[in-house]
Each structure stands twice: as C-alpha cells, then as structure tokens.
Computed example of a mutant assay.
Amino acid sequence: MSRQLISRNADLKALEEGGYEVAVKNGHLVISNVPYVNANREVKLGTLVSVLQMNGGETMTPSDHKAYFVGEHPCDPDGKTLESIRHSSRRQTLGKDITVDHMFSAKPKEGYRDYEHKMATYVEMIASSARKIDPTADARTYVVANSDEPDPVFNYQDTASTRAGIGGLSEKLAMNKVAIVGLGGTGSYVLDLLAKTPIR
C-alpha cells in the first residue's frame, strides 16, 4: 500500500526521485539518514517524521507545519542548538516502530505547498549545518526505503489517528481477531468503534 501511495502522489514521488529515503509508516511520512550536527560538533544521521494528511489515497496540502525528529537535537556548526526550529524535546511513540525525540516548528508565511516542500525545507535547515563540517553530508542517498506493510488492515492509510496524536494508543488495540456476537444496540456500537482500529 505505501509504495503505491508514493508512486501515486506527485509530492511523495518527487521526494523519492530527489534521492531521499522516503517511507510511509502508520500514517506518517518518514525520511531516514538525515545528516545533522550534535552538541559535540559531530555529524550524525537522524530521521525526520511528519504526520501525513490524506484524502483517500491522495495527499492533502499540509495543515500541520510541525515535524518530529529521531536523534539528538540538531545544532549549528558550533554545536549550539538550532533554536529557529526548536519546539519541544521529549521521547514519545507516534505509532508502531515510530518513537521520536524532538518536535520542530518552522512555518513559512505562505505555509507549505505540499509534502515535498515541507520535508525538503526541514531537511535543508538541519543538514546545512552538517555540510559545513562535512561537505559530503547529504540526505539524498538514492536508497529506496521499504515502507510496504505486509498485510494492511485498512484499505487506506489511517491518518485520523496520527492527526489526533493517538497512533501509539491505536496500535495497542492491534490483535489477531475479534468476534462480535449480535449486532443489536450494543453490538453495533462496539462494531462502529472497533472498525476504526487495527483489530481484524
């Protein structure tokens, strides 16, 4: 499903064709191997994550300007924290296999046109410092990331849970199968609630 999402959406495909390691995981857009500078002035690799807003199988214009980061907080070439993007720092789980360390906030006046604009802008803000220390530091590795779920529960990406910030909680409901006996007043209410979770 995720590989199809990338190929069918011009902004996601442009990121991948631009050389970024792009994956769609649990309603999030993920770019791996983003070079950054840590407080010790060392060049490291981190992961940039954004909530992905979809309408069916098509990406929408991002209304959320924030992004998440896995790794130490990026710094400038002198080892000082990049305050221009800093929002908050705390470890949190956004969904299965997505645990982040920091949240960034950088909003251009006109907003982000699409996800290519948003993610490429954040990557440049982070990686430009790394290039000043190591000119070969580049997030464009031209590696195609594996983002396909082997057997997805939903026909479409569950972006409602990610927008609400309950992706991690929703994943706790994933189990093999659930049977509901009787779809009267209580059973139909339970079915409606469970249909929005990863339960089969």
Rank of each mutant, 00 (worst) to 15 (best):
131 R>V: 05
180 I>K: 01
54 M>W: 03
63 S>P: 02
122 Y>P: 03
118 K>V: 04
178 V>Y: 07
65 H>L: 10
26 N>P: 02
200 R>G: 10
25 K>D: 09
15 L>M: 14
118 K>R: 08
170 S>D: 08
93 T>K: 10
107 K>N: 09
75 C>L: 05
164 A>Q: 15
24 V>H: 06
57 G>N: 12
67 A>R: 02
142 Y>E: 14
90 R>S: 14
74 P>Y: 01
110 E>S: 15
119 M>V: 07
85 I>F: 03
161 S>P: 06
24 V>T: 05
84 S>K: 14
185 G>M: 10
67 A>G: 00
158 D>K: 03
141 T>S: 14
142 Y>F: 15
86 R>E: 00
136 T>M: 13
56 G>M: 06
119 M>F: 01
70 V>K: 11
37 V>P: 04
110 E>V: 14
83 E>H: 13
152 P>S: 03
105 S>A: 14
37 V>E: 03
42 E>M: 12
6 I>H: 00
114 D>E: 13
131 R>P: 04
147 S>R: 09
83 E>K: 13
80 K>F: 09
56 G>H: 04
11 D>L: 04
73 H>T: 11
155 N>D: 15
172 K>E: 14
159 T>V: 12
114 D>I: 09
148 D>I: 04
87 H>G: 01
81 T>Y: 08
94 L>P: 02
175 M>Q: 13
169 L>S: 02
89 S>F: 00
54 M>D: 01
152 P>H: 00
33 N>H: 14
90 R>C: 11
163 R>K: 15
156 Y>N: 12
8 R>S: 14
185 G>V: 12
120 A>P: 07
119 M>C: 02
157 Q>V: 10
144 V>R: 15
35 P>E: 03
76 D>T: 00
31 I>G: 06
199 I>F: 08
15 L>E: 03
158 D>L: 06
176 N>M: 03
71 G>F: 03
32 S>I: 03
86 R>G: 05
83 E>T: 15
74 P>K: 03
144 V>H: 11
166 I>E: 04
179 A>N: 11
99 T>V: 10
116 E>Y: 09
174 A>E: 11
43 V>C: 09
71 G>T: 06
167 G>T: 04
141 T>C: 00
116 E>N: 10
120 A>T: 15
90 R>W: 13
191 L>M: 13
26 N>I: 00
166 I>K: 00
71 G>L: 00
160 A>Q: 11
56 G>S: 06
174 A>I: 07
179 A>Q: 12
68 Y>A: 05
136 T>F: 12
56 G>N: 08
119 M>P: 02
13 K>Y: 12
35 P>D: 07
28 H>M: 05
135 P>K: 03
163 R>T: 14
168 G>I: 11
171 E>W: 13
164 A>W: 09
186 T>S: 08
15 L>D: 02
38 N>E: 09
138 D>S: 06
174 A>W: 07
